[in-house]
Design a protein around this nucleic acid. Sequence first.
DNA 1: TCAAAAGTGTTGTTGATACACCCATGA
DNA 2: TCATGGGTGTATCAACAACACTTTTGA
Lengths: 232, 232
Amino acid sequence: MRSHLNTRAPLAHEVLAAVLQVRSDTLRVLLWRRALDPHLGRWSLPGGRLRPDEDVETSIRRQLAEKVDVRQLKHVEQLAVFSAPDRVPGPRVVATAFLGLVPSDVDPAVPEDTEWHDVDALPRTAFDHEAIVLRARDRLRSKLSYTNLGFALAPEEFTISALRGLYSAALGYKVSATNLQRVLQRRGLLIPTGHTAAPGRTGGRPAALFSFAAKDMHITDPFAVLKPPPRR
Amino acid sequence: MRSHLNTRAPLAHEVLAAVLQVRSDTLRVLLWRRALDPHLGRWSLPGGRLRPDEDVETSIRRQLAEKVDVRQLKHVEQLAVFSAPDRVPGPRVVATAFLGLVPSDVDPAVPEDTEWHDVDALPRTAFDHEAIVLRARDRLRSKLSYTNLGFALAPEEFTISALRGLYSAALGYKVSATNLQRVLQRRGLLIPTGHTAAPGRTGGRPAALFSFAAKDMHITDPFAVLKPPPRR
DNA sequence: TCAAAAGTGTTGTTGATACACCCATGA
DNA sequence: TCATGGGTGTATCAACAACACTTTTGA
């Protein structure tokens, strides 16, 4: 049987985050270039060691604060544990991976050795970090469909066509502005702010500005099938 | 910045599993009664320490093998990391939690101090194990709707009404046998075996037996909304 | 008055639920 | 032939996609 008190096999725990943002109509991830061996010169995810007094979410938020303003990080969620014994060289390190989202209207001041990379054209990455990025991308793509997670990609106020661009970049295919608006309106996620955006140089009807009703993630499309019977 | 080589803060990692099975029309979880302090007498999840040479999934499968025949464990998946610094008394232990599923037709030989408990009427549990059980229950409930995960709750061959019972117990509300069959058939998950079950004592048409087409989990209802455009 | 961009009206499709009806067996 | 449970046919409903059409602006 097991004992909670036995600590004979020390092991390190790190937290890593794939911080995603839509920039220039492309879904990007924040990576930094390793300045040390192992894997010198490869690109890796921000993060670091778990401290004794913090849980994993507190830890990743603390470590990201060095790179991204906390107020700019609209959403953070656990992805999975990566624990292959040889996932990093040297002493064993188990990692808890996170997804982080930054809205498209901010440009966080990031350190010199960091860059935003297209998630669909990653450079040579360190360790198992590519798998983590892809997991984050897939999680975002799923959740855009059945939650209100779009709020974490968008500015406070936005036009429907801007939102369409964000969804298209994140999902990897063109989304219809018309139907996107319908879906989000039906679910009560969109609030018209009453303001309008200035039309472009070439004219056109000025776009209405909207904001998201909620700024915390929740599920908007809970049951695809096998719904519970209605209460009478 | 971080270093992979620094191991100055040793910390233990354990794996825990909420193993679920439908027994007597109730969704149950396998718990064992702690024989040691802390939390002597409370009920806790099976699991134990992560060894240096195994990843977390290998580890939980090894540890469960002592309690449940591996061939009886039809599905295992990661739930989340539980990492509050004080989640267990004494030296810190971070846990990776899993969901495990056992089909309804087997009755694994379990140790003396282990019992199956109704997930909706848990006894006094140790540490944060209740939260883990509830997380496992919710994960199962969601996935029954948009994946083929039912295969992991059902015997190799089953009648639709037996399957209805399993889904109802797992979901916590009555499911219509008619519509359950329609949904699963439409998705191509059910294969008629050609066999029939003997009618009950009171007569009735003999039920046809079915099996699941796949025995690995996959998503059957991938996009609720914002579907990708059809390829031409 | 024309082009451009935003937004709405309308229709058709799909996947699901509800429920009536038919089927096959034991007593 | 009746009671009991199993299975199918069919109506209805809701969510969504597609697309035509209207609105509002700049030039």
